[in-house]
């Protein structure tokens, strides 16, 4: 059982996270993000990714860890989730990490306020702890999709 998990590591604030490499299509520098009115605050807006319009989520806001500062190291992880392409705004992104699967442990009860649902496990690289996320679940709850719909229904009646 010495299989390695290939993952893309990234930083939000000081925390280190990783997602399975298969869920990330590419990592890009942050282009101009156009804010879309009337969206949840963690929806940063949309970008033009070579002719495709991709919605951007600020993961820091999503995890209620504050607000992402746009710096030189900021990146967008372009991920495919539930057949939709979504960009995740993170403070920094790393190379591909190889995590020995025996170093991964089930998630503790509470990690930095992030909903436990999104976490698949906790790994270690040297001394550093790295939190493994299930990227699909980050959006799967789909709360943001429903917000607008509910409001409109209320008004329409």
């Amino acid at each position: 059982m010495n299989k390695n998990l290939q993952a893309v590591g990234f930083k939000i604030g000081k925390e280190l996270f990783a997602v399975d490499i298969s869920s990330v299509k590419e990592i890009v520098r942050v282009p101009e993000i156009v804010k879309v009115p009337d969206t949840p605050d963690f929806m940063e807006g949309v970008i033009n990714l070579r002719g495709k319009i991709v919605s951007i989520i600020d993961l820091k806001k999503r995890f209620r860890l504050g607000k992402a500062d746009r710096t030189k190291t900021s990146r967008i992880l372009v991920a495919e989730m539930n057949e939709k392409v979504v960009g995740l705004l993170v403070d920094a992104a790393s190379e591909v990490l190889k995590l020995p699967s025996d170093s991964i442990e089930p998630p503790p009860d509470m990690v930095s306020g992030i909903g436990i649902n999104y976490i698949t496990g906790v790994g270690k690289i040297g001394e550093r702890i790295i939190i493994l996320l299930d990227i699909r679940k980050v959006l799967n709850n789909g709360e943001w999709q429903q917000i607008a719909a509910k409001d409109l229904d209320k008004m329409a009646s």
């Binding site: 009115p37 009337d38 409109l152």
Partner: peptide, 15 residues
């Protein structure tokens, strides 16, 4: 292009 991020007033975008 549909932008599916919960906005009711901007349902689409174009380039």
């Amino acid at each position: 292009k549909a932008i599916d991020n919960g906005s009711s007033i901007a349902s689409g975008a174009s380039i």
